[in-house]
Amino acid sequence: MDQTTIFLCEDSIAGICTGLYDASASRLGYRRLRLELNTGANDMELFCRYITVDPDPEKTSKVVRAIRQKISEQAWEYVYRAMLSAEATRADDIYRYLLTGFRFGASSLNRLADPAVHRLLELDRLVGNESHYFKEFLRFESIENDVLFARIRPKADVLTLVTPHFADRLPGENFLILDVGRGTAAVHPQNETWFLSSLAPENVNDLLSGHFDEYRDLWKTFYQSTAIQERRNYELQRSNMPLHYREFAPEFEKDVLR
């Protein structure tokens, strides 16, 4: 029996891209290899060979260039978003798609009945939907010096997809969006370009303490009075705005003293 080789990639763009590079350079063939993300707690299979992939900027840029030039710009966009997804199998899913992609070029994305293409589009859609949800449901709060501060807890790593929307919309604001789960923050200084940074959870409380934002209450008032009681429908409300997205929305906050 042929042994399967598993490429353990670091969970990052460079990690996955390097894994794609090493897997294809290994010439093992798609039947005998698999990509996995190194979670530190992977279930080791007995009859598999494991290769840990070291992220490598040069290999990464080669992979990116190959996708953009040999498949298409659009394919790279899909692959990029797929890499941000939270699906455990994403590295391998992308590898499977690239087999089709490099074979058929730009038109590969139209081969909807190909399971690998279908899966890539599915990942893209998951990430696209989640980033759209956060454009809708993210809430800023005005803190010291009129800085706007928002917290999100996305499953996929959508911070870099969400922030440009707000940078375009609120060019004159100082704002900060924190991905609470990952500890990464997008910082947008007034009239400048935004950048990524990190923010430790213990600093969040400092940011929030001692500020009273009167518009939160006005918003809650509006949220209450704009609903038609005779049409009450919590099931519909929940399917339109899943609980997962309500965590930091003031209108769903229990009235406790903060």
Partner: peptide, 21 residues
């Protein structure tokens, strides 16, 4: 720059009221 706001053709819902609208 110098303004606030943009618009998006696909529409952005910001919340859903208790009536689901």
């Amino acid at each position: 720059s110098g303004s606030i706001g943009n618009t998006s053709a696909c529409g952005i819902c910001h919340c859903f009221a208790a009536d689901g609208r």
